[in-house]
């Protein structure tokens, strides 16, 4: 049986966990596993599980992004989890109107979609030059350069010194890459409609 004091302690830790996860304290959103461990104790993952069910009712969920290339929760050791980044994300996708009100221009979103799908289809990395060539077919050079730099700054993409672009931590946190690729493949193109 759970004692009252234990319940109060869990409630206190739940509050602390939600504050840590939701309040942006660094330049990048989210909180590292070791920070949660420091604030909530060694059993912090159990508190996160309880919080997960609370947030579920609000249409939100806790997402964990591990360092390195797309490690899954089942494969992660406790050291990996300590180093991982924890976020709260929206459970459902954005509606068109929400997308517009969030301040993103539709062509900027299109640049991001094309870039992620292209890099993803090449096992998560592609030379920046190739991505730029692809995007410049539809967007002016300045827009492509500005957007790619912005996506790198915001963590959607990662750029190495040898001008290779990789999928960034933010894409792994926010974007369901498989769904995105499937939706792009299912998109009717101009030529498809002509055939019909």
């Amino acid at each position: 049986m759970v004692r009252l004091s234990d319940e109060a302690e869990v409630q206190r830790k739940l509050k602390k966990a939600s504050q840590l996860l939701l309040l942006q304290r660094h330049r990048s959103p989210g909180v590292k596993g070791w920070e949660l461990k420091r604030a909530l104790g060694k059993e912090y993952l159990k508190i996160i599980d309880v919080l997960r069910s609370e947030l579920d009712r609000l249409g939100l969920e806790v997402k964990i992004v591990y360092d390195g290339s797309g490690k899954k929760a089942q494969e992660a050791s406790s050291e990996d989890t300590d180093r991982a980044r924890f976020f709260v994300v929206m459970k459902g996708p954005l509606s068109q109107s929400e997308m517009v009100s969030s301040g993103w221009r539709i062509d900027d979103v299109a640049v991001l979609a094309a870039t992620i799908a292209y890099i993803n289809s090449r096992q998560g990395k592609a030379p920046r030059k190739q991505v730029e060539d692809l995007l410049r077919e539809k967007f002016p050079r300045w827009k492509v350069d500005m957007n790619l730099d912005r996506f790198v700054r915001r963590g959607y993409l990662l750029e190495s010194e040898d001008d290779m672009l990789y999928i960034g931590w933010r894409t792994r946190a926010e974007i369901d890459q498989k769904t995105l690729t499937n939706l792009i493949l299912a998109t009717p193109t101009g030529q498809d409609s002509q055939v019909k």
Partner: peptide, 25 residues
């Protein structure tokens, strides 16, 4: 597919697979 799709269609595909991070300031 990317080359043949309209920018609006690409944006729509991303919006359907996007779960933005929620944070407060």
């Amino acid at each position: 597919k990317i080359r043949l799709s309209a920018p609006e269609a690409l944006a729509k595909a991303l919006s359907k697979s996007w779960h933005p991070i929620v944070s407060l300031e």
